[in-house]
Computed example of a mutant assay.
Amino acid sequence: MLVKEWALLEGLHPQTVWKWCRQGTMPVPVEQTPTGMWLIHDPKYETASQSNPADSRTVCYARVSSGGQKEDLQRQADRLKAFAVGMGVEHPEIVTETGSGMNDRRRKLNRLLADPTVGTIIVEHRDRLARMNAGLVESALKAQGRRIIVVDETELDDDLVRDMTEVLTSFCARLYGRRAAKHRAEKALEAMRDERV
């Protein structure tokens, strides 16, 4: 179990739990992966969450925004696979996808989210899952006994800053989308005018 998950269940601040892990004063068994991530093995939570471990799959999800980033996509997938193996996953599945993080038109991710046999989804950064509202996806999966692991949590942890970034990203997407739509409409009208002449 991740530090943030255990801290939430125990009503503690994650920084306190990380400090305890580093000092070796945790009241339950912990381990540090080769990548430096702390995993907490609390028997009272692990036995409840591992009701059907044979059916649960771990999938690494890598995404880039455009087709010109194929090399980046492969490197991202390789890093995720190495992380999963470091966590102890014997045969992690890799799912790669090219598509915008601003909308829900990602068939492969939608399939993963709808598949109840996928117990854990590993992503490199939170925005690889979704640019906005990734927390809602996490909450929905958690309610089903599933989880998302974010490898690099160095993103902004300040809720206000994250919310502001999401709002600005949404406004930019709408603005650029409108500009593109307006541009396409102008071209269509111009083409109609040209046909009349």
Score class of each variant (00 low, 15 high):
H41E: 06
Y176S: 14
A77M: 04
D163V: 09
W6I: 01
D78Y: 13
R193G: 08
Y61W: 02
M1F: 10
E5H: 12
T16W: 01
Q144R: 13
I121G: 01
E166R: 00
G86S: 06
E190C: 09
D152P: 03
L113T: 04
A77T: 03
R57W: 07
A173I: 07
T47G: 10
P43L: 06
P29C: 04
L160K: 12
T98G: 12
L12V: 14
T169D: 06
H41M: 06
S65V: 00
A185D: 13
M1G: 10
K182N: 13
P53F: 08
L2T: 15
Y45F: 11
T117H: 08
S100P: 03
T169E: 07
S56N: 11
L8D: 07
D104Y: 15
T47H: 12
Q76K: 02
V95S: 05
A143G: 12
S49Y: 11
I122G: 00
V59L: 06
D152M: 07
K44Q: 15
V17T: 05
D157R: 13
R79Q: 14
A48K: 14
V95H: 00
R57L: 11
Q76H: 09
E31H: 13
L168K: 04
K142S: 15
N52L: 02
R162V: 09
T165S: 10
V167I: 12
L136S: 14
P53Q: 07
Q32H: 05
K70G: 02
L9G: 06
A114L: 05
R79E: 09
N133M: 15
E90Q: 14
R126L: 11
A62R: 01
K108G: 07
S56K: 15
T33P: 06
V85D: 00
A84I: 01
R162H: 07
V150M: 02
G86M: 08
Q69P: 05
L112T: 01
V95W: 05
G99P: 00
S65W: 00
G86R: 04
R106Y: 03
W18K: 14
T16V: 10
T117K: 13
D55R: 11
R79Y: 09
L175M: 13
M26E: 03
A185C: 10
L156K: 15
I149S: 02
V59Q: 00
T98R: 04
L160P: 08
L113K: 01
R22Y: 02
S56D: 12
V95R: 00
E155I: 13
E186Q: 09
Q15K: 14
A134L: 04
W6T: 00
D72R: 13
S49L: 11
N133E: 15
D194R: 14
E124Q: 05
N133Y: 10
L8S: 10
A48P: 12
D159C: 13
D157K: 15
E186L: 13
W6M: 03
P14I: 04
R193W: 10
M26V: 08
M192P: 06
G135F: 05
K182Q: 13
V28N: 04
G99F: 01
R63N: 02
